[in-house]
Design a protein around this nucleic acid. Structure first.
Length: 211
DNA sequence: ATCCCGAGGG
DNA sequence: CCCTCTGGAT
């Protein structure tokens, strides 16, 4: 896979998925943080199904900091992993109140120190929340980047490094969404829809390609 | 049965 | 590196 083909793939991804953005609903940076924390190992619809009511009742970091796990758990249980998520969301809310005046910090080092916030979540907050260039690598980005030959990575960290070297900084946030949506709609984990893929003839993982 | 915009702990 | 946490959709 040469650099020429990689740039061609990126161009087609951009044309196909231009303008795509997060499906998560949120009304503030802190709500974005909660929504992304809830999204682990579930899908956007499951998160959006509960955050409407949740954020109407509890909107700010201070609101969540005042909750106990026993209070929050039943409100988020439908998203799965709910004990860890409840504990982490409350602990992160308290740390944000104590250390950052109730505002989500615009700094990756600080974000990653929040309980339950790892590299992927931190990068989503930076790029989607603050407009700071960052390329979040989730399960879709990891899988799709490897399949398309945009990366040859064994870990999400390697994927991030390799993609960032390939893509201009101002497109990191957009590229994250191109790969997410391509992974969700076409390049699925189980049964990739290669026959309706705009990259069918460029993808090194497509066995049935015509060229 | 498998996957979903992961992270922390052992 | 592996395991665990977890419900809901397909």
């Amino acid at each position: 896979m040469g650099k020429q083909e990689q740039q061609q793939i990126l161009k087609i991804l951009e044309e196909t998925y231009r303008g795509s953005e997060t499906a998560l609903k949120f009304g503030s940076l802190f709500q974005l943080l909660v929504a992304v924390m809830l999204s682990a190992q579930t899908n956007d619809n499951q998160v959006n199904a509960i955050t409407g009511q949740l954020f109407a009742r509890y909107a700010t970091a201070a609101d969540f900091a005042s909750l106990t796990p026993a209070e929050l758990e039943p409100l988020i249980s439908s998203c799965g992993l709910y004990k860890n998520k409840a504990k982490n969301i409350i602990a992160a809310a308290r740390m944000i109140c104590e250390k950052y005046g109730g505002e989500v910090p615009a700094d990756k080092e600080a974000l990653v120190k929040l309980p339950g916030v790892g590299g992927k979540t931190a990068n989503v907050i930076l790029s989607v929340g603050f407009g700071i260039p960052a390329l979040a690598v989730d399960t879709h980005v990891f899988r799709v980047a490897n399949r398309l030959g945009l990366a040859a990575a064994k870990t999400p960290e390697q994927t991030e490094t390799q993609l960032c070297a390939l893509i201009p900084k101002q497109q990191w946030g957009d590229a994250h969404h191109w790969l997410i949506w391509h992974g969700r709609k076409v390049c699925k984990a189980q049964h990739p829809q290669c026959n309706q893929c705009p990259l069918e003839n460029l993808c090194p993982s497509n066995q049935g390609q015509s060229n």
